[in-house]
Simulated assay, not measured.
Amino acid sequence: MDRPGVARWTGRETKALRLAMRMTVRGFAAGIGVSDRMVSKWERGGEHITPRPGNQAALDTLLVRAGTQVQERFAQLLTARAAAGDDERTEALLAPATQRHRHPVDGKLMIAVEEGIYLSGAANPPSWLPAFFIDIYPVTNADYVRFTDATGHPAPRHWGRDGHCPDSIFDHPVVWITWRDANAYATWAGKSLPTSEQWEKAARGAKGSAYPWGDAATAAKCNVQESGIGHTTPVSRYHSGVSAFGVYDLCGNTWEWCTTESEPGRRVLKGSAFTSPFVRADPAAFNDASETMSDNDTGFRCVTTALDLGRR
């Protein structure tokens, strides 16, 4: 089962976890079972120092048991640290938390995408869009549980015959969702599915980068076929794949439904999935499907306008 984790702990990740847990050095050290001097040494060494395997295992356990809110703060701190160098996403990723809003109905974090011109499509013609807010993460199984509990909407097939979501995939994107299911969720939440233009701007930024993270074709920054994982992953896993606006999973993990109709009864899909080769992760690429299609690699996220959000 997938759990939040770190491939290799260094002093940088150790400090990020302590800050995310809002603990003193002494309290954090006690939780790991080491001296506070040891924790201070790790933090001073930053990315150049690596705790011993036993201590790394203890850090893994601490992160898993910390809970969703701590894990989200930990992911945001790592993203901010990664952006602090020579990265065109720095300004957006280090934006104050006031630009992030928790939606009053479904409780999801959303972030602003400012109005203006951006480059869109394969030929990069300039397009203009009004401002909007977009979910930072795709709709997860945990989010969808709140929707089904509130409305009685049928549960997706992978939850099992009893309709209960397994704990192991709470923080994974919900799948086996038709466009109509996704639209029903958006309507319940008082939001909407993004247009293909909104989705692409959130992915490519105002300057029309080839990928959310820039122009380098780096498959390791997302969950695609080349990753060899073979299933969905937690929505906050790929910190280095975050877009210029601070949005996760816009390449890989799951295809995402858009509200844009390609032809009667068919809607645009964006982003590619764990089942797709990296070449299909191009945010400008076109894909669509029948509104009644559902699969193990198809999910969604929502948008709303700044005005609507401000009125709630």
Rank of each mutant, 00 (worst) to 15 (best):
Y137T: 12
Y137M: 08
P138H: 06
P138Q: 12
N141D: 14
Y144L: 03
V145A: 02
V145Q: 10
F147L: 10
F147V: 12
F147E: 06
T148G: 01
D149N: 07
A150I: 03
G152D: 05
G152K: 05
H153A: 11
A155K: 14
P156L: 04
P156S: 09
R157V: 15
R157Q: 10
R157P: 00
W159L: 06
R161T: 05
G163Y: 06
C165Q: 08
P166S: 08
P166F: 11
D167G: 00
S168L: 06
I169H: 06
H172D: 11
H172T: 06
P173I: 14
V174T: 07
V175H: 10
W176G: 00
W179N: 10
W179Y: 15
W179R: 07
D181M: 13
D181A: 13
A184S: 15
A184R: 09
A184V: 06
Y185M: 06
Y185H: 13
A186W: 05
A189P: 00
A189L: 04
A189G: 01
K191Y: 10
K191V: 10
K191C: 13
S192V: 09
L193F: 14
L193G: 13
T195R: 12
S196H: 11
S196Y: 11
Q198L: 02
W199Y: 15
K201W: 04
A202G: 12
A202T: 13
A203V: 08
R204M: 12
G208E: 11
G208A: 05
